[in-house]
Amino acid sequence: MSVSATSRTPLAGRITAAFEDRLRNVPVLIVLGAIWLFFDTRSDAYLSSQNLTNLVLQIVTTAILALGIVFVLLVGEIDLSSAILSGVCATVVANYAVTSGWNLYAALAVGVLLGMVAMLVQALIIVFGVPSLIVTLGGMVVFQGLLLVVLPPEFTVNVGGTDYAKIASEHLPTSLSFVLAVLILIAYAGSRWRDIIGSRSDRTWALVSIGVIGVAVLGGVTVLTRGNGLPFPVLILGVMLIVASYATTSTRYGVHLYAVGGDRDAAQRAGIPVYRMVLYSFLILGACAAIAGVVDASRQLAVSNSSGGGPLMLNAIAAAVVGGTSLFGGRGSVWSALLGALVIGSINNGVQLLGYSPEVQFFATGGVLVVAVAMDVVITRGSLWPRRA
């Protein structure tokens, strides 16, 4: 005899509701811990400071791109073109900064502007009524052609030995890294001041969050600075995450962002500029794509016709979703980009370190993605059981 809906709904509702807000990242952390434990039992080098530093550097590009995708997912849209666009922007920056001898910052500004303009064009088509899946799929093909146009006849630009290459090779001194870490913790504690002086439950959760963030930040800086100091790409990612976190949690823009993703019709009736919020999200994604492309090219010491290709797009989307951002809009956090990238990157790093065959990496990544989306469906539905037709 099957269990009736009336007997299972209250328990199912309580279980799923527990992970809708404050505990949404807990399953991700559990999965990440399990992955680290699995690979650590098979290789003593996996959790060494050197390998953890390599892991973080490997995921920076994915995490930056996933950060932009989070903003698009939060308003209920999707993107398939930003990875190739990152290669286009990186190539344009290389053309100006290396080939033409421009100042690096001026070239970077042009690259970021190009990324934002390209995404703006797509966003305008989307708000006109064309599904974002189709628009960005077409954009991906167009950008693949554009990449071949902006590349020189030899289809590569070497950036080694230039200021461009220093973006990924520079390190922040250890002492300055810890000073910045402390300042970040102070700023985070200040942003939670209202919760600290609020109700008992809010105060408890705020103090727990500050403690967890403190251990993570100081522990991460300790591990990552054991070599030459804090890698500059990690600093770039950290600053972007902090700015994005403040914008989405402590500003009116953040309130509107989640409102549009949660119920677009209700947001429009409340006077929220829905189409403008969609445009803003794609503009942010364009900027993130350009920065991700430049950082990746700086690490690879070159741009080519393969820039922005490979599994980057899939990994970035998977990182955002696995990290806890809903495909249905309105739920998630910018920190999903980091957590999801760590999960995907930890699998890839472990598989490569142990010399497993490539199909193991694909099986594991695909399985984690399917499980994450299934959990998102359960949370969205509010029940562990499928609805009856």
Results as ranks from 00 to 15, higher is better:
154 E>K: 14
135 V>E: 05
146 L>I: 15
148 L>M: 14
161 G>N: 11
157 V>A: 04
96 Y>F: 08
171 H>L: 02
138 G>C: 12
143 F>T: 11
164 Y>N: 01
160 G>A: 15
122 Q>G: 07
97 A>P: 01
160 G>M: 13
133 L>T: 14
104 L>W: 01
95 N>Y: 03
103 N>C: 04
161 G>E: 11
114 L>D: 01
165 A>Y: 08
138 G>Q: 12
145 G>A: 15
107 A>C: 04
128 F>H: 11
167 I>V: 14
163 D>I: 04
96 Y>K: 05
145 G>L: 09
129 G>N: 08
164 Y>F: 14
159 V>P: 04
131 P>T: 13
147 L>C: 12
162 T>Q: 07
127 V>G: 09
146 L>S: 12
141 V>I: 14
141 V>D: 03
115 G>L: 02
141 V>C: 06
140 M>L: 14
110 V>Q: 03
149 V>T: 14
94 A>C: 03
128 F>E: 10
145 G>Q: 13
113 L>V: 10
120 L>A: 10
130 V>I: 15
104 L>C: 05
132 S>H: 06
136 T>A: 08
106 A>S: 13
106 A>E: 05
124 L>W: 04
97 A>V: 02
99 T>N: 05
116 M>Y: 00
112 V>S: 00
129 G>F: 06
95 N>H: 01
117 V>P: 00
125 I>G: 08
165 A>W: 07
157 V>W: 04
109 A>C: 04
165 A>F: 10
120 L>C: 05
104 L>R: 02
106 A>H: 05
168 A>G: 06
110 V>H: 01
159 V>Y: 08
131 P>M: 12
95 N>L: 06
157 V>F: 03
139 G>L: 07
166 K>V: 14
153 P>D: 13
151 L>K: 04
127 V>H: 06
116 M>F: 01
95 N>D: 02
170 E>A: 14
168 A>F: 15
142 V>G: 14
155 F>D: 11
150 V>H: 11
146 L>Y: 12
120 L>K: 02
103 N>W: 03
128 F>Q: 08
169 S>E: 11
166 K>H: 12
131 P>F: 11
166 K>M: 14
132 S>F: 10
146 L>P: 13
105 Y>V: 08
126 I>F: 04
97 A>F: 05
103 N>D: 10
161 G>K: 12
152 P>C: 09
115 G>Q: 01
124 L>H: 07
135 V>S: 10
104 L>K: 02
121 V>A: 13
156 T>C: 09
125 I>T: 13
99 T>P: 04
170 E>V: 10
150 V>G: 11
114 L>E: 04
169 S>L: 11
160 G>K: 15
152 P>S: 12
143 F>E: 06
152 P>E: 13
97 A>I: 01
168 A>E: 06
168 A>I: 07
136 T>K: 07
158 N>S: 15
102 W>G: 05
114 L>F: 03
121 V>S: 05
148 L>W: 15
124 L>D: 07
119 M>T: 08
123 A>Y: 03
117 V>A: 10
118 A>F: 06
122 Q>E: 05
155 F>R: 15
169 S>P: 07
161 G>A: 09
140 M>F: 10
145 G>M: 09
113 L>S: 10
93 V>M: 02
159 V>W: 09
112 V>T: 04
157 V>Y: 02
164 Y>T: 07
122 Q>D: 00
169 S>T: 13
160 G>V: 15
162 T>A: 08
107 A>H: 03
157 V>E: 06
133 L>A: 15
107 A>R: 01
158 N>M: 13
